[in-house]
């Protein structure tokens, strides 16, 4: 009893409301996903949902196809976003701090409106609404999420490492490949997390960009849930959850530098 009072009066106990909240709204819902994925409509234990997934080439195809699209989107985002982040963080090349804000600002226009405007843009330039349009649309939507974390790590980087490398005789290419790039990896990894998973899971955007011609995995999940095939839809989302867990394992190293949201302001 005494220990309880002591605990309640300490600042550690301030975590209690949040622990309770997370238990109800984060942990239990995730457990429910596992429960629903392994049961049928009547609540009996079953593997049928997963058998259905592995027996249906269509669902697997969508899954693999989505991963492919997401990989391409992520690579394009790194290829276009890394140089931008590097220029933005380099005081010799860019003096204005406000520039980074300009890259984040488009996120303020509702993602669906932006997507529809992108469709209008493609129409305007008579670009066919297919795979290419899909990837470009995804890049449009997600590149700010790649630029920002990379910019953040590059900016926090200790400049003396670069000077040391130069003093030790590295040429600019070597400095970049062996010092700057490895040190910016945490930023790249959190950028990858912010682009790769959303590309697979976002529904609606792919539908709008391709006029319903191409389906990504997120759409498949949503369609099943919408058509009251809850258990199957939930099983599919459990598969995606496992994919997320697998990708985030790559990203566990430095808890202190990455992931610290905020900062935008």
């Amino acid at each position: 009893m005494k220990r309880l009072i002591l605990f309640l009066s300490s600042r550690k106990s301030w975590t209690l409301p949040y622990i309770l909240f997370s238990a109800v709204f984060v942990v239990i819902p995730l457990l429910l996903i596992a429960v629903y994925a392994f049961t049928d409509d009547n609540g009996h234990l079953t593997f049928a949902n997963f058998e259905k997934f592995f027996e249906h080439p269509e669902a697997i195809n969508t899954f693999v196809y989505s991963i492919g699209i997401a990989i391409i989107t992520t690579v394009v985002c790194i290829a276009l976003g890394y140089p931008a982040a590097w220029i933005l963080s380099n005081s010799k090349l860019n003096r204005s701090r406000a520039m980074i804000v300009l890259f984040i600002l488009p996120m303020w226009v509702n993602i669906l409106v932006r997507t529809l405007a992108t469709v209008a843009l493609f129409d305007f330039c008579s670009i066919p609404l297919g795979e290419g349009a899909l990837i470009f649309g995804m890049v449009y939507n997600f590149i700010p999420f790649m630029i920002y974390p990379i910019y953040n790590t590059l900016q926090k980087m200790d400049q003396s490492y670069i000077e040391a490398a130069q003093d030790l005789g590295a040429n600019p290419v070597q400095v970049f490949l062996r010092v700057v790039f490895p040190l910016s990896m945490p930023g790249v990894m959190s950028g990858v997390m912010m682009v790769f998973m959303p590309t697979i899971s976002t529904f609606a955007i792919a539908e709008l960009l391709t006029m319903n011609n191409i389906k990504l995995f997120g759409t498949t999940i949503q369609e099943n849930i919408n058509n009251s095939m809850w258990n199957y839809g939930v099983a599919l989302s459990l598969i995606m959850l496992l994919l997320i867990a697998a990708t985030s394992l790559f990203n566990t190293d430095d808890k202190d530098n990455s992931n610290e949201g905020g900062g935008l302001w």
Partner: peptide, 23 residues
């Protein structure tokens, strides 16, 4: 707690949405 805290961030909208829907 940091781990639990990072779950909704990593999960992606659709998983968060479905899990809360189930709840």
């Amino acid at each position: 707690i940091s781990f639990v805290n990072s779950i909704p961030i990593l999960n992606g909208d659709i998983i968060t949405g479905i899990s809360l829907f189930l709840l």
